[in-house]
C-alpha cells in the first residue's frame, strides 16, 4: 500500500450484511474508509456530492463501489445505469455484490457495464476470502482511475 487514502462506497440495505462486509474489510485493512449507504438514492447523492454528502472531506469520491441490486427507492441496476452513463463517474469500478444469482440480474448488470458481478457466498470463510481478494484486486492490483 502506498499510503493513499482509499475509500469504498458500500451500498447495502441489509445492516447485517453491511456489518459482515465492513468487518472483513477492516480485518484486511485494504481501505482507509468505508462509506455505507442503505439505498440507491443515497448512493447517487454520495457519488454526486449532493445533500448531506456535500462535504467531500467527510465523503470523498470512492475508489470502488460495492453495489447490491435489490435496494429501496432507487434499484441497484438504476444506480449502475446512472453511474456508467455519467462521463465523470463511468470509470468508477462497480462490483455488484448481491444475494441473487439469477441469470437475468447478471445479464442486466453486464448490459449496464458492471465491472464485476459476484454472489454473496453463504459460507463465512468464503465470504471473508472473497472480500479480501476483491479489496486487494480492485484497490491494490488494479490501476485506479483516480
Amino acid at each position: 500500500m502506498n499510503g493513499e487514502p482509499l475509500t469504498i462506497l458500500l451500498v447495502e440495505d441489509n445492516p447485517d450484511h453491511a456489518e459482515l462486509v465492513m468487518r472483513n474489510m477492516e480485518d484486511f485493512q485494504v481501505a482507509n474508509s468505508i462509506i455505507h449507504v442503505e439505498d440507491g438514492e443515497a448512493a447517487l447523492d454520495c457519488l454526486y456530492g449532493r445533500g448531506k454528502y456535500a462535504d467531500r472531506k467527510l465523503f470523498p469520491m470512492p475508489h470502488l463501489m460495492l453495489l447490491d441490486l435489490r435496494l429501496p427507492k432507487v434499484d441497484g441496476l438504476e444506480v449502475l445505469k446512472e453511474v456508467k452513463g455519467d462521463a465523470d463517474l463511468k470509470a468508477l469500478p462497480v462490483v455488484i455484490l448481491t444475494t441473487s444469482d439469477a441469470e437475468r440480474d447478471s445479464a442486466m448488470a453486464y448490459e449496464y457495464h458492471a465491472n464485476s458481478y459476484v454472489t454473496k457466498p453463504v459460507s463465512f470463510d468464503e465470504f471473508s476470502t472473497l472480500l479480501r481478494d476483491l479489496g486487494f484486486y480492485w484497490l491494490a492490483w488494479n490501476k485506479r482511475p483516480w
Binding site: 447485517d16 450484511h17 459482515l20 444475494t99 439469477a102 453463504v122 463465512f124 471473508s128
Partner: peptide
C-alpha cells in the same frame, strides 16, 4: 426471484455471524 433473494439474505447473515 423475490422469495429466493429474500430467504437467502437471512441465511447469509446467520452463516456469516456464526462464522464470526
Amino acid at each position: 426471484y423475490t422469495v429466493s433473494h429474500d430467504l437467502k439474505s437471512p441465511i447469509i447473515t446467520i452463516k456469516g455471524f456464526t462464522g464470526a
